[in-house]
Design a protein around this nucleic acid. Sequence first.
DNA 1: CTGAAAGCGCTTACAG
DNA 2: CTGAAAGCGCTTACAG
Lengths: 342, 342
Amino acid sequence: MENRITLKELARLLNVSISTVSKALNDSPEISPQTRKRVKELAALNHYVPNVMAQNLKNQKTRTIGVIIPDILPHFFAEALHGIESKASELGYRVIICISNESIQKEAESINTLIKGQVDGLIMSLSQETQAKMEIDHLKAISNHKVPLVLFDRVLNQIECDKVHINDSLQAEQATMELFKSGCKKIAYFSGISDTSVDDERKKGYLEAVRNHGASRKVVNFDQKNFPDQKLQDLIRNKNIDGILASDELGAILVMKSALDSGFRIPEDLSVIGFTNGIMSEHFRPALSTVDQHAEEQGRLALETMVDRIEGKLPPEPIEYRLETSIIHRKSTRNKALQPAD
Amino acid sequence: MENRITLKELARLLNVSISTVSKALNDSPEISPQTRKRVKELAALNHYVPNVMAQNLKNQKTRTIGVIIPDILPHFFAEALHGIESKASELGYRVIICISNESIQKEAESINTLIKGQVDGLIMSLSQETQAKMEIDHLKAISNHKVPLVLFDRVLNQIECDKVHINDSLQAEQATMELFKSGCKKIAYFSGISDTSVDDERKKGYLEAVRNHGASRKVVNFDQKNFPDQKLQDLIRNKNIDGILASDELGAILVMKSALDSGFRIPEDLSVIGFTNGIMSEHFRPALSTVDQHAEEQGRLALETMVDRIEGKLPPEPIEYRLETSIIHRKSTRNKALQPAD
DNA sequence: CTGAAAGCGCTTACAG
DNA sequence: CTGAAAGCGCTTACAG
């Protein structure tokens, strides 16, 4: 940072005014071709780079979008981030990332640091704690500062802003129906991400499907760090559970591992569908059938919406996108009627 | 961004000077307690937040670090990024992320945008293309602009800067020796990330171990999108390959899937160790034994080094950290002498 | 075609 | 204890 050459210094060396240098560098037609050439040559020679801080201050915008996600390790968020970053880069925007670690406090801190004129807008997927406690005071700060907000995946109806997500309940209902159609009689819902909006929706969809089908319900919430193996065994053996819808990829993998380790066969004894398609689903044996949430697509759309909002291309009222999802049939379900992909 | 309240406006409302407001907000002892109180109350009421762009311009620093990684989807980079972000947040720094997608051009673009006064320093892991072609002109720009650089994991000796990585060749040698000790006779090295510095080092270590052991060598480079199943089968069946060291997690998983699908048993017929410990290694059946590269630790250390450099706490000459790694023994190796973890 | 001046929002040495 | 002034590096209306 020290000793970087500035317009002022360039102007001094060239014996012209700062304005002239600035205009020449910006290819203003006001400046004669010869001067432009001279200026550019000297600038290149000295590795001149404009100071964006100064430009931003002057222009009152940063072309930078803040992104706050709960975690980066789950494949869904890594992929969504990838979508956000690549779209941003296409549109000439930069991205600042903060990770809330599922905590309200960290989320609030991130909002505060980003909001200080550092970013033109904020894209967020809410932390588990925020959704569980329904505390949204820290989010209010965003609108107080007139910074546009786009929520994706984990959204909250109470907040008025643009939203990008999938229809989780509908998808869960359809996935459950697929399990019934494939011959399952008793289906359970396993969740390791309770207290999130997406879990609520997925559970709702599952319950809806089970009710419509006149079957009995069974919801198991567990801690990702401590899978209830014994409970799963009992369910399969004593309650004849033969199908499971899992709330996320890791949950589905844990269910499968536990079942296989206990000697059950997949999909012969137990069919499994997991939400969130990721790399583990693809490579596990048997490969897991999943609801593909199009993480990257959600990210790209969220970023695009943000930019359109910033650039005033959107009507004032918030817009909400509900992406279509699809079920990827692999080896953990036994539906012969459906053509398995891979 | 529009209509955000500024010091000037606050000063007008309070009938004091801008300097007074600024000092009061910064708790300067120059200002009387009453004034400080008045100013702060009005500031809070109006949701005043200082404009960092202006602060940065004035202070000539941003407390922001740019990070350029080749990809975010591999668990190693997601985890390293997590380490970088969390350490940054501890130290009161922000992080701007760019993804080079393994391309020199994208890497160069990212450097250019970040270098414009946006960041105090740059942390990078180089793209595959940069390492393969050994093109480092775009990296020179960083030192031209006196922006400090820390390289991690995928480093290049030709570049003089602080570095954080593991001793890949030593680790590969040791991992190969472990395979020999567990009873393997013919070990192959499989790589899906050829042309990276880490791959070169790992291959070198493997070759060293094989030579020391007087065994025959076999190196297979493949495209991650197109695993050579037939070749693997032939190697195991006809050449009696009974151990494989894989250059990265995905490569190791692909090897295992292919072998299992062809009816070979792991670890009875084939032992596998993979570089890079990740979530797939842990959850695959059988769980994969890996060389743990301590991704998060590398990230944290890289960030810490960057901050120390920025804050002038380091001697002028570049420093190089070589992290200790460890081998995590799981189920894909059959060494009875070693106590399996998990 | 070129330049002087004002201003973006802040901080800080200096004067009073 | 308070304020006027300069300056960080840029852009841009305005004058010449």
